[in-house]
Amino acid sequence: MMSVLERSGPGTAEAPTDLGERGIVFEGVGKTFLTKSGPTRALDDVSLTIGRGEFVTLIGPSGCGKSTLLKIAAGLIDHDEGDVNLFGQTVEAAAASKNIGLVPQSPALLPWRTVLGNVKLPLQVNRRAKLDRELPDPVELLRLFGLGEAIDKRPAQLSGGMQQRVSIARAFYFEPAVLLMDEPFSALDEFTREMLRDELLRIWDRDKKTVLFVTHSVTEAVAVSDRVVVMSARPGRIRAVIDIDLPRPRPEGIETTLEFHEFEDLIRKELKGGWNHGS
């Protein structure tokens, strides 16, 4: 079940021919933060290739650099060493052509805009980027996310779960090549979290975008991913990459199957190994 670190995406009937088929590529990425207590090695020689249409999750203890890696892919943090490529584009170029859809931890909605206005924001900034892709009808998309009633509401009128839905819809709306999700459900209660996770999967299954997902929940990682990347801390390194060979779309109640638990146990074992090793 475990694979080598470098691997192309699933459904590799035909091997990736051009760089574009390899969605997100990290090559020997390193990052050192300068803190008051001296330099901290956040990422050390991280190499990972995420194929087009693959859903990959980063998991690990706090300080393992999983969020840092995501932020590097999003162009929010510069890396010191190595290369990062998004569908053959540099991060900068990918951002300029609006190919990065970010879903941060908090909904990060504009409180003075309606739900619809928030979802449309990506089109209203950086108009120089000519989007040659066909965009969905925003109202239709919001209905799909169960936000049909909320279209004209302001974020403050919505629950946390609804707000996060808007945030995800905003990232889907402009059809970016990659979706980067940084613990998008971590601020929600478990019930809402599971509901949103299932919804995300349902919508993702329609056109399978390339997703890099960060979480600290093992169950969530198994439930959503094609592959789970387990990271260890100090320095942040990839410890294991685990293929999740569960059917897609995920059938109802899959969390209670033996296979699901086996994947969970495998990930937990790797996490604990990394923990003991690190300390």
Binding site: A74, L76, A96, P104, Q124, V125
Partner: peptide
Amino acid sequence: DPQTMDIAKTLHASKLDVLFR
């Protein structure tokens, strides 16, 4: 809000966009 700023950055929003919006 810093995370809203992050969204703007990933969209390559111009300085004017950020200022006015």
